[in-house]
Nucleic acid binder design. Structure first.
Length: 284
DNA sequence: CGCCAGGGGAGCT
DNA sequence: AGCTCCCCTGGC
């Protein structure tokens, strides 16, 4: 067991921020996380975090995974105090971190995410892992399934993943797997590329457009300047940033701001604040 | 039963 | 840039 006191870190906010589909609440402030060949149970009480692993695994894997070396408070302090909307959003999601997740897993996850909702995305991914992933046993004896390699998925018929509830997205995943296996798109090279080139390269995959590519850049490659624009974000830009998002002020970490906004819009915290009377309702 | 929306993308014009 | 299909699944 490793115990740490960590600022700007909230497991529940990360879990609900929609960047990771293999992290779930186990009740009692405890979360289960599957990442690569690692399984973790971690509990949080305020700033105290209890990682159920040894010191070595914490330092060599989980610290990087949760991006714990980075000072997110420094990003929040750079927010324009006149931008009330962003201030509120960042306050609501101040414990969010941009995780460092596996590239192939993020490609598949965000291919599945289009025209889809989070609970179903989770189920799709769980189905794929249970059917095609390697069965694993953690050091604590917990059984879980690893995410299948591109090679496994490249061998399937284009429609075969409909069995896993992917619907029309099945062929996106299978064709992308083939592109990766055949070396048309080289993941190990994408890992070394700067943001714009990586995004360009990812968009060669069938089913990957601009939004999905940005999600992959942000959540796997850790390009914090990536700013995925889904329908929710576009709505916010239209309502609060008619002259465009202040990219210059937040250069290099727009993606962090995107996550605060996204979480704020999705978590329901926005409406709670209204109910407390801190802000006027639109219809009043 | 039908309708339609859900954190887009491809392939056109 | 803007349009039209795509045609899955779940909720109503």
């Amino acid at each position: 067991m490793v115990t740490k006191t960590i600022e700007n870190f909230s497991l529940s906010q990360i879990c609900e921020s929609g960047q990771c589909f293999r992290m779930q609440s186990a009740g009692d402030d405890t979360y289960q996380v599957i990442a690569g060949n690692h399984y973790l149970e971690v509990k949080q009480q305020g700033r105290e975090c209890f990682f159920d692993c040894d010191e070595k695994e914490y330092e060599t894997f989980w610290m990087e995974y949760f991006d714990l070396d980075r000072d997110y408070g420094a990003y929040i302090r750079q927010i324009n105090p006149n931008d009330k909307y962003l201030c509120r959003a960042a306050h609501a999601g101040e414990g969010i971190r941009i995780l460092r997740q596996d590239l192939w897993e993020m490609i598949v996850s965000f291919l599945i995410s289009q025209q889809n909702n989070i609970p179903r995305i989770r189920r799709c991914i769980q189905n794929i892992c249970e059917r095609y992933g390697e069965k694993m046993i953690s050091s604590q004896g917990k059984v879980y399934y690893a995410f299948p390699q591109a090679r496994e998925l490249s061998l399937l018929e284009e429609d075969e993943l409909k069995k896993c509830n992917l619907g029309y997205r099945s062929k996106y995943v299978v064709r992308s797997a083939r592109s990766v296996v055949q070396g048309e798109v080289k993941l190990d090279e994408i890992e070394k590329m700067p943001y714009k080139r990586a995004k360009e390269e990812l968009m060669k995959l069938f089913g990957v457009g601009e939004k999905v590519a940005d999600c992959i850049c942000l959540f796997a490659l850790h390009h914090l300047q990536a700013f995925p624009k889904d329908t929710h974000i576009l709505q916010v830009l239209k309502e609060h940033y008619k002259r465009g998002f202040p990219n210059r002020r937040y250069r290099g970490f727009q993606g962090v701001m995107q996550q605060y906004i996204f979480y704020y819009e999705l978590s329901g915290l926005k409406n709670e604040e209204w109910d407390n009377g801190k802000h006027k309702r639109k219809d009043s």
